[in-house]
Amino acid sequence: MSLDKDTVRRIAMLARIKVPEADLETMAGELNNILGWIEQLDEVDTDGVEPMTSVSDFRPELRADVVNDGGDAERALANAPENANGFFVVPKVID
């Protein structure tokens, strides 16, 4: 599988990262280089192998349904680049 410029543009959009048009080719090359190296995984026979999502084989205690957090808007907003009237503020969203 090889990435073309359109794919790079698409995944850059998915990741919300700007890749200037002029850099798309270079970026595609770089990523293809890495993906090409990764593709040696195809050599591994994984028929019937369950994918491993976690090394943890225990099941954790769950949280009791108790309100013991929140209640402090200032704390939530303390590091916000922009806030007003208790809200986080962003440029207007246009649907």
Partner: peptide
């Protein structure tokens, strides 16, 4: 539920903005 799916913040309706927000 009293608290949220993954945090201990309240689920009560109609509170002041961002007052029921855990980290």
């Amino acid at each position: 539920t009293k608290a949220k799916l993954f945090s201990g913040a309240s689920t009560a309706f109609g509170a002041e903005p961002n007052t029921q927000v855990s980290l």
